[in-house]
Simulated scan of single mutants.
Amino acid sequence: MLQSGDTAPAFTLPDADMETFDLLSTRGRQRVILYFYPRDNTPGCTLQAADFSDHEDEFARCDCIIVGVSPDDALTHAEFRDQHGLSVRLLSDTDAEVARLYDVWQAREVDGVKKMGVARTTFVIDKQGVIRHVLRDVTPRGHVAAVLKLVKELDT
């Protein structure tokens, strides 16, 4: 399981506009807040994405970009973004390949049925591509404020 001090696995995924995001392209330039979430248009996922979008300027002042990843396709991401006025970049991991790389593709029991899905997890990655913080089993409410505090502490 990935932890603080590990190098963040490289990946390339399409975003809601079908443009490619390559994690390696951020090295030496920006920190990355990489958050994995289960699905577009669920209450918790909407709250989390809206909260990150509302605080995107504060993260930008700390040299951070915010990237959300879920198994939804790019078209679903575009509709989700447009419907809720989101500004953060949403990446499509339809085959859960990146979720597996980051150890967030996990078995869960829902109504007595075991299903595979994304465990809500956030990674704070520094400019050198090193994971500085891992937040697992995230509760959406208050999460963005906690991540912003961690990012600001990296500068002290």
Results as ranks from 00 to 15, higher is better:
2 L>H: 08
3 Q>K: 15
3 Q>W: 05
4 S>F: 12
5 G>W: 03
6 D>Q: 03
9 P>C: 14
9 P>S: 14
9 P>K: 14
10 A>G: 12
12 T>W: 00
12 T>D: 01
13 L>W: 00
13 L>E: 02
16 A>C: 09
20 T>S: 11
20 T>V: 13
22 D>V: 04
24 L>S: 14
25 S>T: 14
26 T>M: 04
26 T>V: 12
28 G>V: 00
32 V>H: 07
32 V>Q: 08
32 V>I: 13
32 V>N: 05
34 L>P: 01
37 Y>P: 07
38 P>Y: 09
39 R>W: 07
42 T>L: 01
43 P>H: 04
45 C>W: 01
46 T>A: 02
47 L>A: 09
48 Q>G: 09
50 A>G: 11
53 S>F: 03
53 S>A: 10
53 S>C: 13
55 H>A: 04
55 H>Y: 06
57 D>S: 15
58 E>A: 12
59 F>C: 11
60 A>N: 12
62 C>I: 06
62 C>N: 14
63 D>A: 09
63 D>F: 05
64 C>R: 08
64 C>L: 04
66 I>V: 15
66 I>M: 13
66 I>H: 05
66 I>C: 14
67 V>G: 00
68 G>P: 08
69 V>D: 11
72 D>R: 01
73 D>M: 02
74 A>S: 10
78 A>G: 11
81 R>S: 09
81 R>L: 01
82 D>Q: 11
83 Q>L: 13
83 Q>S: 07
84 H>C: 05
86 L>R: 05
87 S>V: 15
88 V>H: 15
89 R>P: 01
90 L>S: 06
90 L>C: 12
91 L>S: 06
92 S>H: 01
93 D>A: 01
94 T>H: 05
95 D>W: 05
95 D>E: 09
97 E>V: 09
97 E>W: 03
98 V>C: 00
99 A>M: 04
100 R>A: 13
102 Y>T: 10
102 Y>S: 11
103 D>E: 11
103 D>C: 08
103 D>I: 05
104 V>A: 02
105 W>R: 12
105 W>V: 00
107 A>N: 10
109 E>F: 10
111 D>K: 13
113 V>P: 06
114 K>G: 06
114 K>P: 03
117 G>H: 12
118 V>T: 15
119 A>T: 13
120 R>P: 10
122 T>W: 08
123 F>T: 07
125 I>D: 00
126 D>K: 06
126 D>W: 03
127 K>W: 09
127 K>H: 12
127 K>E: 15
129 G>H: 10
131 I>G: 02
132 R>C: 08
132 R>S: 13
132 R>P: 11
132 R>L: 03
133 H>K: 15
133 H>Q: 11
134 V>D: 06
134 V>R: 12
136 R>F: 12
136 R>W: 06
137 D>K: 12
139 T>W: 06
140 P>G: 13
140 P>S: 14
142 G>K: 13
142 G>E: 10
144 V>A: 04
144 V>E: 02
145 A>V: 15
145 A>H: 03
145 A>N: 09
147 V>Y: 02
147 V>C: 04
148 L>K: 07
149 K>S: 10
152 K>W: 02
153 E>R: 08
154 L>I: 15
155 D>M: 04
155 D>F: 10
